[in-house]
Design a protein around this nucleic acid. Structure first.
Lengths: 109, 109
DNA sequence: TGACTATATCGCCAAATAGCGATATTTCTG
DNA sequence: CAGAAATATCGCTATTTGGCGATATAGTCA
């Protein structure tokens, strides 16, 4: 995006952002920040079905954000793209700034 | 997201990412990188309807990413959050890395 | 005031998708 | 091989949303 991006590039960028636009997927990424987990490990820590965890893992994997390793009859996922956490931090900082800004309005009354 | 984020925080972060997950909105942000534009200016540069531009501007504005200034019977929008471009750059870099990686596979045949 | 321009909103439709339960597939173990 | 456990996929539904044309609203100017 250093040049004027064409429509096709914008679509690809948008698709990547869409991967991050879902709380369950963000929760998975956050868990994988610490260590790899099997699908079942993740299911136990997330309040959703195994079907859904597998589905969201597939989305993350196909976005090239995760590694996938089969060990016996389990599958372990781990983080491939650390930039994920940079993205989240930028967004969190922004949300905190906005929250503080609107709080200030309140405090100034 | 420095601590274990609760569901509510994840939802807020996901909502912000969702704002970026749409090519028309990304195109608007990219145009506003250079200078402020009126709604009509943007409509002329984007291949979509005025109704849609207004709609996407509303989404961006409500996400606290844009400034809005009325001058006469025109409304000018300008960028409020420069971090937008940091986000896009991180994603673009990642996409370029992935593209290069898959190209290497091809070259190795 | 009325015509004109700029922007926002409304009602609608089509497409995408999170989530679920059920089931298929794969792997290990006996 | 049969059975169990782990994971992936399928069919489905409900919700969201990008996009459009039509219309409403607001500002300017004669």
């Amino acid at each position: 995006m250093s040049q004027k991006p064409n429509r096709e590039s914008l679509i690809r960028v948008a698709e990547m952002f869409r991967v991050f636009s879902e709380p369950t997927r963000l929760a998975i990424l956050q868990l994988l920040k610490d260590q790899p987990y099997s699908v079942n490990d993740l299911v136990e820590q997330l309040e959703t079905s195994q079907a859904n965890v597998s589905k969201q893992l597939k989305t993350l994997y196909e976005a090239d954000l995760l590694f996938r390793e089969q060990r016996g009859n389990q599958v372990f996922y781990s983080i491939k793209e650390k930039m994920v956490y940079d993205l989240c931090e930028l967004v969190c900082d922004k949300l905190n700034r906005s929250a503080r800004a609107s709080a200030e309005v309140f405090y100034q009354i």
